[in-house]
Computed example of a mutant assay.
Amino acid sequence: MDALDTRERILLTAERFYAERGFDGTSMRSLTEEAGVNLAAVNYHFGSKKALMWDMFRAKIVPLNDERIRRLEAAEAQPGGATLEAIFDALLRPMFEQAQGPDGTNIIFMRMVGRMFSENEEFWQQLHVEFFNDLTARFRGAVAVAEPGLTPASLAWRFHFAIGAMLGALLIYHPKGACTEHIDFGDQDKMCTHLVSYMCAGFRGMEAPAE
């Protein structure tokens, strides 16, 4: 096994362990046993448990966010600029495409996203600053252009609820559960299309509460 194979095996195992157990619940002893390596190999390639997890996040999140920005820029380059539908599609579809594995829904990826948003405050803040601060600002700015006239507070609330809808749709995976008639949870493309439509309607239809 060469060094590249070793590093990749460690990252793939870390992804699965994190999805199943979270950061605190991931034992480096169990992870190394599962990956077929020793602790020295993890220390050599990554230096620490947190550095390993951060590299795993980086490998998943950075290409995803780059694709989101690419699609947003393409939408903004259209005559008349980007519509709200195009903006949310650029934000959502790359994630749903990643959740659609070659053999069906990528459960590990979906669980990993859920774990990220349930970490302790300090851990989540570090993740958000490194991977999501700039992305959020970029998309909120695009929404402000597409839907002018909203106060900063109103835009912030609506964007917050839109992100909540995205995460809920992505994480609620019950292919054989109750109340799922007519819903194919394995079709991530269709789920994304329905969600974009729902989010845009809610975003435009939300009434600001009385002061």
Rank of each mutant, 00 (worst) to 15 (best):
G104I: 07
M28W: 06
I87T: 01
F161G: 00
R29V: 11
K60L: 15
F123G: 05
T83I: 00
R9P: 03
L84R: 02
R115I: 07
P175V: 05
T151H: 02
D5H: 10
F159A: 02
F131C: 04
A86R: 04
T151A: 10
N38R: 15
M191D: 05
A3C: 12
A178F: 09
F23R: 13
L167Q: 09
G101N: 08
F161E: 00
S154Q: 11
L155G: 01
D2Y: 10
Q78G: 03
A40M: 14
G205N: 06
F203W: 02
A82Y: 00
W124Y: 13
L31N: 01
S197A: 14
A208H: 00
P209L: 01
Q78A: 14
R16Q: 15
L91W: 06
P94E: 00
A3V: 15
T193C: 07
A41S: 13
R93Q: 09
M166V: 12
D66H: 13
K50L: 13
V42S: 03
F185Q: 08
R111E: 11
A165S: 12
V145M: 01
G104K: 12
F96K: 00
F17P: 05
R111P: 02
G101C: 07
L72E: 04
L170F: 10
F161D: 01
A178W: 06
D189P: 07
A75E: 03
V42D: 04
P102Y: 08
G101T: 07
K190G: 07
P152A: 09
P152M: 04
I69E: 10
A19D: 06
G186F: 07
G81C: 00
A144Y: 01
S197L: 13
A75L: 05
G177L: 06
H45G: 08
R115Q: 15
T26S: 04
G101R: 09
L92E: 06
M53L: 13
Q78I: 01
L150W: 02
G36T: 10
D24I: 11
K49P: 00
V145I: 14
R7F: 04
K176T: 12
Y44P: 05
M199H: 08
D187I: 07
E15R: 15
D55S: 15
L12P: 01
D184N: 15
W157V: 04
E207A: 13
H194T: 13
P209I: 01
D24K: 14
T13D: 09
T6C: 12
R21M: 08
G47I: 03
M166I: 12
H160K: 05
W54A: 13
E147C: 14
R71C: 05
E130L: 12
L127T: 11
F23A: 12
I172C: 08
R140G: 13
M53G: 04
M166G: 02
D189V: 10
T136C: 03
M112D: 03
A3P: 05
E181D: 14
P175I: 04
E33W: 06
I108C: 11
C179E: 10
T26H: 01
E207Q: 11
I172W: 13
S30F: 11
P148G: 03
A153W: 02
A74R: 09
V62R: 09
T32A: 09
